[in-house]
Write a protein that binds this DNA or RNA. Structure first.
Lengths: 121, 121, 121, 121
DNA sequence: GTGGTCTAGACCACA
DNA sequence: GTGGTCTAGACCACA
C-alpha cells in the first residue's frame, strides 16, 4: 500500500500514516468512494498496533478525507470535495512564509524568481 | 522584552520563547553582541519556570543565534553571521510548499501572482 | 420505493431504512394495512444484505409501525394508531431542546420568532 | 467534580464525559482559562481508564471547549468564544425538529404555544 | 470481517 | 505532575 513508517521522523506514527493516506487521496491514487485498507489489515501490514491505525483513520476522517460505514469499512472522500479546504490551508502556509521572507529580507523579486524556476508541475 | 506566551499555541513554551528571540535577533531589535536577559530575570518577567527558559536558550544557542560567556552572560550573534543558514532553511521550506502546490494543482502562474500580491515587505 | 442509503450517514444502515419507512408511513405514502416490500425484494433493490433489511423491519415492528402476518407478509400500521406515541416523543425532544436553549441563553422571544419564521408546513 | 457515568446510557463513556464537561463550561461553572481536572486525577475519581479520559478530552478540545498546554494541564475556553458555533448547531437542531413537526402534523400555533408555556429560562 | 470502545500498563517530552 | 503516544488484548454492534 505504499506506506512506510520512518521511526526517526519526529512526527507520531499515526500522523505519518494519515499524512501519507491524505496524499494518496489528494493525488488520486485512491479515488472517490474507494475503500481504504481495514484497520486490522493495515495494522498487520505495517506491524503497528490496531489502536494506532484507528487513531490515524480518526484523524483522517475528522479532516474530511474519508468516511466510515459500520461493518462495511472506510472509504475515501472525493478529491473535489476536499480540495477547497486544502487550498485554503495551503495559502495560509504561503502567508506564513511571506512573513518569514520579510524578516529574512528575501526580496519579492528574488522569491518570485525562485518560485518560477523551481515550480515542479 | 516584547515576549508573550500564548498558551493556546500548540508549540511548547520553550520553543515559543526561542522562536520569539530568534525573530528579535533576525530583525535587528537585538543587535550583534548585545546581551540577552538572564535566565532568572526572564523567568520572573514571564512567570515561567527557569528550567524552561534555560531550555529555550539552549535551543537558541544550539542553532547559532547566541553564545554564552562563562560568568558574563549570553549575547546575540550578529545577523550577518546567521543569515545564510536561515535563508537556506527558508528556501527548503519553499521547496516543500512547491511540492504541495503540485499535488493541490495550484498553478505556477496562480502561485506567483499570489506571492506578488501578498508580499509584505 | 424512494429509499436511498447514504453511506456517509453515521447511523447504521438498518436504522436509515427503518427511519425512512417510518417517515413514509407517517406521511401517508404507505397507507394503513398496505403491504411493505418483502425482505428479499428490498434487499435486492437496495443491494443490501437481507439480514440488515430484516433488522430494519424488526426495528420498525417493535416501534409499532407495522405488523407481520405469518405467510402473508408485513403491513403498515394505520397512522392514527401510531401518531399519539410519535407526538409524545416529539414533544419530549422539544423539551430537551428547551433545556439546551436555556444553557445557550437563547431567549424565549428569539426562539418563538425563529420557529414562527422557519416553520415549514 | 459533578460528573457521573451512567453505564446504561447507550452513549460511550468518553462522550458522556465530554458532554458533561461541555455543559459545565457552557453554563459557566468552569470559567474561561480555568483548569480542568488532569487526565489521571479524573481517571482515578471516576474509576475510568486514563485512555478513555484522554479520548473525552480530545473530543472536547477538537470541538473548541478547551485547550491543552504540554506539561501544564488543560484549560477551559471562554464561553464567549464557543457560543456562536453552539448557537448555530442549536438552530440546526431546531430546523430538524421543524421538519419533524411537519410530518407529524404538529401545527405552527400548537408548537409556538408549547414553546411559550414550557420555556424554562 | 469491519469499525468503535475500553482496559491495563508503559514510556516520552515538557514544566 | 501533565499531556501525548503506543502496545497488547478484549468485547460489542453491524453487515
Amino acid at each position: 500500500m505504499l506506506i512506510e513508517i520512518d521511526f526517526r521522523d519526529k512526527r507520531p506514527i499515526y500522523e505519518q500514516i494519515s499524512a501519507k493516506l491524505e496524499e494518496l487521496i489528494l493525488c488520486g491514487v485512491i479515488g472517490a468512494d474507494e475503500s481504504l485498507p481495514s484497520v486490522r489489515s493495515l495494522a498487520v501490514e505495517l506491524s503497528i498496533n490496531p489502536n494506532t491505525i484507528q487513531k490515524a483513520y480518526d484523524n483522517l476522517e475528522q479532516r474530511g478525507f474519508c468516511y466510515s460505514v459500520a461493518g462495511r469499512g472506510r472509504f475515501a472522500t472525493g478529491v473535489a470535495e476536499v480540495m477547497p479546504e486544502r487550498r485554503r490551508e495551503f495559502f495560509a502556509e504561503v502567508d506564513d512564509l511571506l512573513k518569514k521572507a520579510a524578516t529574512l529580507k528575501v526580496e519579492k523579486d528574488e522569491l518570485i524568481r525562485y518560485v518560477g524556476e523551481n515550480y515542479a508541475g
